[in-house]
Amino acid sequence: MLELKEITKIIGDKIILRNFSLALSPGESVAVIGPNGAGKSTFFKLAAGLMQPTSGEILLNGEQIKKKTHLLKKRIGYLGHESFLYNSLTPLENLRFYGKLYKVKNIEEKGMELLKAVGLHYFKDIPIRSFSRGMIQRLAIARVLLAEPEFLLLDEPHTGLDQEAVSLLNQLMKERQKQGISILLISHDFEQVINVCDRVLILNKGRVISDRNIDPQLELMSFKKWYEAAVIGK
């Protein structure tokens, strides 16, 4: 259970998030959408413990995320805008390194398994410096899944992925969801949002302006219309 209670975040003189509250129960997957600069990534950084909220609190299974609770961070898998990977290392070495930090048992097996799952096992011994954007994104996803987190925070995971990788990713997410893992997803790709998530939040200028469930029969067009109405209407 991930709970954010009345989070406000001010950076410099700017209010990035205002009174943001959210409860994420196990197995739920929530999409966060909204225009650029709405504060979506900031919300994720707060939840991942990279920033401290100006006011309000963030609870993970009832425990507050603070500086000293770094062991809680093991439960969170955060995929940011950047890959966090080392260009000079091979995919396997990257996974091995992060696996050690996340105290993952039998890293080798798991690493190989994940590399297969994201379709990189042929490239496992090549330094990732020569990888394309999409390949790096695949590996970044593998890095996030490595420690089997209970909460996935995926910030625009679909960027740079080809069609095959997108469906791979969606499949991976759905699998995790069935295992009771909660997923938060930022995406500008509404098709994937409808495909994967069962609830959606619209964030605009640091405020939640809309929060609704998605039923799987929803049409992409009507979803888009609803989004535009919500963003422009307010």
Partner: peptide, 10 residues
């Protein structure tokens, strides 16, 4: 690749 952030979320 902002890997320091990777260490910070670890």
């Amino acid at each position: 690749n902002d890997s320091l952030t990777g260490l910070r979320v670890a």
